[in-house]
């Protein structure tokens, strides 16, 4: 099965919408489970989608997670219209965060988002433009394995 016949779904996320935070990642996790992906893949996909969703909610005006699944891999492409990232290397450093004190009080802004995504992915690509937005491509190789 090639790219054209992949399972695809788009999940929009609104910046600042803390009330719905976690909804999209829960949906993606449940879909991955229903499609029979292994527990290990479901767990990694869930962690990465949660962090991607939270980053849009915390920092961007709006964005979306585009999920596509083929027998060999799960891919999530995250795009947002937001401030972009000035220094990617710094942003990838665990513990570095630009979260506000209010967000930190709620337990966000641990400075682990991007590194959590990278750790759980097989391929992690990031491109960003300051003042415009950020695009992440997160790929999990499944090698056709099902639970």
């Amino acid at each position: 099965m090639g790219e054209e016949s992949a399972f695809r779904q788009e999940f929009p996320v609104t910046g600042g919408d803390f009330a719905r935070a976690g909804k999209v990642s829960c949906e993606i996790k449940n879909l991955a489970k229903e499609l029979g992906l292994s527990d290990r893949v479901v767990r990694r996909v869930a962690i990465a989608s949660y962090e991607a969703e939270m980053n849009i909610i915390m920092y961007a005006r709006e964005g979306r997670l585009n999920l596509s699944i083929t027998p060999d891999r799960v891919r999530i492409i995250v795009e947002d219209s937001g401030p972009g990232i000035e220094d990617i290397e710094l942003a990838m450093t665990e513990g570095y965060s630009t979260a506000t004190p209010e967000m930190r009080e709620l337990g966000f802004g641990a400075g682990m988002g991007l590194s959590n995504m990278k750790k759980n992915a097989d391929i992690f690509e990031i491109s960003t433009e300051v003042g415009r937005g950020t695009r992440l491509e997160i790929t999990f190789l499944t090698n056709g394995q099902r639970a």
């Binding site: 976690g22 962690i47 949660y50 966000f108 641990a110 959590n116």
Partner: peptide, 29 residues
């Protein structure tokens, strides 16, 4: 929350002082 997402495991008891609704998504995930 990111620490708990990264390091907690299935079937564990999560001990925290965060009481806002976002903890539910973390526990469910």
């Amino acid at each position: 929350l990111s620490d708990v997402i990264a390091h907690s495991r299935k079937d564990q008891l999560w001990i925290t002082l965060q009481i806002h609704p976002n903890v539910i998504a973390v526990a469910a995930l």
